[in-house]
């Protein structure tokens, strides 16, 4: 106790450093996912629109421990400094809460996700329907449980639909992680930390068009094909869940 340095960080989290035996080792061929799912099985998805009353449109999404809220504001006046534009602008911002991760974080903005979210949604929005104005898409990750970014995209597209922004189609996103010789869909944080590579597809399920494809790590062409098939199939199913959420919301408001 005496050797406690005074210039150490003011506080520290007393969580256990020594990991529980890892669920996955490189040599393992036979292993079980931390939440007991099959390799090609997604977590059950829960969506609800209208989570934030102050916004023009909003949605809440929960997949396992991953919980996000997205609010959409506008179309509203663009910043004064912006040049004239005859198509609408999109402005995205993603931030994390301080309690999103198991150790208390800084709760800062996530610049990378902000710009990637912009690019993933841009292609699905009919920007020409709101010239000279801006639509703001703000996201907050309440809890990070893995596959945060794909959940954010799907949730944001529901929020856009809730706000009445014209879309070509809903946007659904699903990620696949490569662990050794296995492909696991919709990875949780623990699996993401062990992955050799990841593949993320963002697509418009009814039109069967891809708006964003991100691949990291080393992949062979055949594995890419396999992973893409998996993702596209899951996106179609996710799209159905999202659609039914919108229908439900619409039927309750007309009642």
């Amino acid at each position: 106790m005496a050797g406690k340095p005074n210039d150490a960080p003011a506080t520290y989290s007393p969580s256990l450093k020594n990991k529980k035996h890892p669920f996955y080792k490189n040599s393992d061929l036979d292993w079980v996912r931390p939440d007991g799912r099959g390799f090609h099985q997604c977590r059950p998805a829960f969506f609800r629109t209208g989570a934030v009353n102050a916004a023009s449109g909003s949605a809440y999404a929960e997949l396992g421990n991953t919980k996000v809220i997205v609010s959409v504001f506008g179309p509203r006046e663009s910043k004064k400094a912006m040049m004239y534009s005859d198509i609408g602008r999109l402005n995205c911002n993603v931030s994390y809460t301080t309690f999103a991760t198991s150790v208390r974080g800084q709760g800062s903005d996530h610049k990378e996700f902000s710009s990637m979210l912009h690019k993933a949604l841009e292609g699905a929005i009919r920007l020409e329907t709101f010239p000279k104005t801006t639509v703001d898409i703000f996201a907050l990750v309440l809890e990070s449980g893995g596959s945060d970014f794909p959940v954010l995209i799907s949730c944001a597209s529901l929020a856009l639909a809730d706000a009445g922004i014209m879309l070509h189609d809903l946007v659904a996103a699903v990620a696949v992680s490569s662990l050794g010789s296995n492909l696991v869909i919709d990875p949780v944080s623990e699996e993401e930390s062990y992955q050799d590579g990841s593949l993320l597809i963002t697509c418009m399920p009814s039109r069967y068009e891809v708006t964003q494809l991100t691949i990291t790590g080393e992949w062979s062409t055949s594995r890419i094909n396999e992973a893409m098939e998996l993702c596209l199939d899951a996106c179609t199913k996710l799209g159905k869940v999202m659609r039914s959420c919108l229908k439900e919301a619409a039927s309750t408001t007309t009642d």
């Binding site: 007393p14 102050a54 809460t97 703001d136 907050l140």
Partner: peptide, 25 residues
Amino acid sequence: EVMTPSVDSPDEGNIAVEYYMPPIC
């Protein structure tokens, strides 16, 4: 989280309050 208490109050912990209004609200 764990901290070293201040010299003035060696047997007291503390509370740090932060209030955020993220752009979603």
